[in-house]
Design a protein around this nucleic acid. Structure first.
Lengths: 131, 131
DNA sequence: GTAATGGCTGGAGTTAACTCCATGTCAAGG
DNA sequence: CCTTGACATGGAGTTAACTCCAGCCATTAC
């Protein structure tokens, strides 16, 4: 059970955090092994996730959704651990990612256009078939 | 070497087709094993790809680029083999895919917005650090 | 005729990102 | 005290989509 329920410093067990993030406990442990997250442990050696972890995981998931491989997210996480000296480098990564996202959106839109044309062709073919 | 060079009925060996599509020969053979493409064979049992195959592969690559798994592309390919009776079903698939593409674009744009905010925050932090 | 080139097959190996499992610990409830 | 449930660890297994390899055949170049 989490301590300080509803208080300022929420702490979650891995099971609770799993529900909160919609990630399986196995995935959460995997992310820890990959050094993406670093939850504290309680006196029984159980993981304690915080609201900060929640925000960080949300960010990770956004990166994942936009096709950033774990390998790169890991690099970002490592820089983050190193503190403010890596601010510039991290921003460079974000800028680069922004650029690739825009490329991806463009590509999607292009493909959407082609798909729409194809669907129209299909509609015509089906109409022809009907009569 | 391809026959009818520059003519109406271009035929490509797997090596030529590999360059044409930017897919490795191994990938092309893999796609055949997965029944995505069905090139003819010449008397020496070598694959002969045509311009029609090129158009079909281009379409496959568009589907892949928009995150359709090979499994589904395979289903579409199978329907395609079955001829005009499956027109409607194929169009349903395309429509469904269209819908998921739009969802993906929206998600990307949402994430892009968040990323932009984050980048702004970083810029502010770096500016603070500088002085 | 021999060597180089490109293609063929079946099957093993790879990578990413999980997912599952056996075994063990710990705290709380009855 | 004993059971139950959540959690811990190390390591094996899974899936997708290739990628690589060994051993063999056919065509072309000298």
């Amino acid at each position: 059970m989490s301590r300080h329920q509803g208080g300022l410093f929420m702490v979650y067990s891995i099971g609770e955090f799993s529900k909160l993030t919609s990630l399986s406990v196995d995935t959460l442990r995997y992310y820890e092994k990959e050094k993406l997250v670093h939850p504290d442990r309680n006196r029984s050696n159980q993981r304690q996730y915080t609201d900060k972890d929640k925000m960080w995981v949300d960010f990770i998931l956004r990166l994942k959704e936009t096709a950033m491989p774990i390998r790169k997210i890991k690099k970002y996480a490592r820089l983050r651990e190193e503190g403010d000296v890596t601010l510039k480098e991290r921003m460079e990564m974000l800028r680069a990612h922004r650029h690739s996202m825009i490329k991806q959106i463009e590509k999607f839109e292009d493909n959407l256009g082609h798909l729409d044309k194809k669907i129209e062709t299909y509609e015509a073919m089906i109409a022809d078939h009907k009569q």
